[in-house]
Design a protein around this nucleic acid. Structure first.
Length: 511
RNA sequence: GGCGCUAUGGUGCAACGGUUAGCACGCGGCCCUUUCAAGGCCGAAAUACGGGUUCGAUUCCCGUUAGCGCUACCA
């Protein structure tokens, strides 16, 4: 006998060998965070089971597609670290497959030629046009299409027909969903949906419609688990019917809840960035973003939240997927990012910082892993130590180029607000000058030596150490906010610190 | 409008008939302190509402309400 789980589904739905899943975006926009999460779940599932991940581009609507957007989607996936084993396949190049399938449905009586005018909703079977996705929803009564062409009479001469699926009258269509359980839909609620568009010009038929394309491809690509957004739940019975018409058994379905905006309404630009590439541009760490996304609509069951990707893969299961839509909570994403910035093994963080510095032109090749030290003695070890010093305060990657600039470059400016805040005491110039003298004499350059020297100068000058410390920070890194001063001094080096102090003192004379 | 899905603090998740309803983000306070973070401690904050079922409901059932989804020759 077969083992069943809590939902009464075969145990095998959760651990099948030979798993094949796919992510099937449509190039009508960028990679949306919702799509990214779907891609991630598919990927985690595939990797967890040692299965195959497929990328398929669903570009069957020539009018809405923008081929140039495909690259953006691919870039987004790559940044996210979601890779695939097969594809990308383009549905626009598989037209014959769909036409053959549609004709098969035609010949076995599960579809019919529809001569209704292609210009929307003019067919008369609709009481009125479907509400477009705008605010004033509702509207008058609308009913399900039972197309009058289904009995094969009109055959308006000359007009090119589309192929519609002949949905059974009466009865129900059911399927098993790994997250929502058993679902059953009344066939009378399902319209006679279009399989193949009517042909244009001298074409017999046009491109496939979504329902046909997914099913034909999922069969052809031997997809075992269809993991997609919950917005497809109501499409599923149509597809199940199609599987039957094509003589095959449907795969397992797993619909994952949607990601909504902070106010729980449909996620839109109004809520902030919805394009994954925007998060890359802002400087989030991909692994942090992945961790955050994974926890939107899924949990391993426990309380852990900081879960590195390899553990995500180990723990991922469809059983942990929630049925509730989740709100995209940006503050939490930022928290994940700072957590990763701090907790990542330094070797894992360094490459990201390197990319950032290269992008801002601050990178020096001698900081690379096996490069020889630069003229100033800085090498990979220095770079690593510096990044390590900086990272507790960094929130986004670009911080390494902005307020951290003075650590990587001698060309930096001193923040006006910082000067205003910490240089206002009239004794500052003199103190900084004395500190420069004292530090220059040091024969050993380390944290404690800097510490003692600075405090001694402060004491001799009759001020609290904090005053000198803060003033010095502004002088040598130009920022009010920076790592602890003496660690900073060590990393910058004696020469630079002294030079910057003197430079700062000189600046007072001019101002 | 029809059909469907969902409903634990503001947010993300735990608790899958019996807990003082747990964790995290965010928020407030305190500690630490050399700026700012980080970190530590403390605190405010939830089972949408109404009916059932049960010895006992956050948990199971029904209704209401709300949100979301689908309702195209879009995907």
């Amino acid at each position: 006998m077969e083992a069943k789980d809590a939902l009464g589904m075969p145990e095998t739905i959760h651990k099948v060998a030979g798993v094949r899943v796919r992510f099937a975006p449509s190039p009508t926009g960028y990679l949306h965070v919702g799509g990214a999460r779907t891609a991630l779940f598919n990927w985690l599932f595939a990797r967890h089971h040692g299965g195959v991940m497929i990328l398929r581009i669903e570009d069957t609507d020539a009018e809405r597609n923008k081929p140039e957007l495909v690259q953006g989607i691919i870039d987004g996936l790559q940044w996210l670290g979601v890779d695939w084993d097969e594809g990308p396949f383009y549905q626009s190049q598989r037209t014959e497959l769909y036409r053959a399938a549609a004709k098969k449905c035609l010949s076995n009586g599960s579809a019919f030629l529809c001569y209704c005018p292609a210009d929307k909703y003019a067919g008369g079977d609709y009481a009125e046009p479907p509400a477009q996705d705008e605010e004033p929803k509702g509207g008058g009564p609308r009913r399900v299409t039972r197309c009058s062409c289904r009995d094969g009479k009109p055959s308006t001469q000359g007009a090119k027909p589309a192929i519609r699926f002949k949905v059974p009258v009466g009865g129900t269509t059911k399927f098993v969903d790994a997250v929502f359980g058993e679902r059953e839909f009344s066939n009378d609620e399902i319209e006679d949906f279009v399989l193949l568009r009517s042909g244009k010009g001298d074409e017999e038929f046009g491109q496939s419609m979504y329902q046909l394309g997914v099913v034909v491809d999922d069969i052809d690509m031997r997809i075992t688990h269809v993991i997609r957004g919950a917005d497809h739940i109501s499409n599923t019975p149509k597809q199940v019917l199609l599987y039957g018409a094509l003589g095959t058994t449907p795969p397992f379905f797993a619909h994952v809840p949607l990601i909504l905006g902070a106010d729980k309404s449909r996620l839109s630009k109004r809520h902030g960035a919805t394009d994954v590439n925007m998060y890359r541009a802002e400087g989030f760490l991909p692994e942090a973003f992945r961790n955050f996304l994974a926890l939107l609509g899924w949990s391993a069951g426990g309380d852990e939240e900081f879960i590195r990707t390899k553990d995500l893969i180990g723990k991922f299961s469809l059983e942990g997927v929630s049925r509730t839509n989740a709100a995209f909570d940006r503050p939490k994403l930022e928290w994940f990012n700072t957590q990763y910035l701090q907790k990542l093994p330094i070797e894992d963080l360094l490459p990201e910082v390197e990319k950032e510095l290269k992008g801002s032109g601050l990178w020096k090749p001698e900081w690379a892993a096996r490069a020889a030290p630069g003229a100033d003695g800085r090498d990979h070890a220095w770079f690593s130590k510096t990044v390590d010093l900086l990272r507790p305060r960094v929130r986004l990657l670009p911080d390494f180029s902005s307020w951290s600039r003075a650590f990587f470059s001698d060309e930096f400016t001193r923040d006006a607000a910082a000067k205003e805040k910490f240089w206002k005491d009239p004794k500052v110039p003199e103190l900084l000058a004395k500190l420069a003298d004292a530090l220059q004499k040091l024969t050993e350059w380390n944290h404690d030596a800097c510490d003692h020297t600075t405090r001694a100068v402060a004491e001799a000058g009759g001020v609290k150490a904090g005053l000198l410390i803060n003033a010095t920070r502004v002088a040598i890194v130009g920022q009010a906010v920076a790592p602890p001063l003496f660690d900073t001094m060590v990393v910058l080096g004696q020469q630079r610190v002294v030079r910057r102090l003197r430079d700062a003192v000189a600046g007072f004379g001019q101002a």
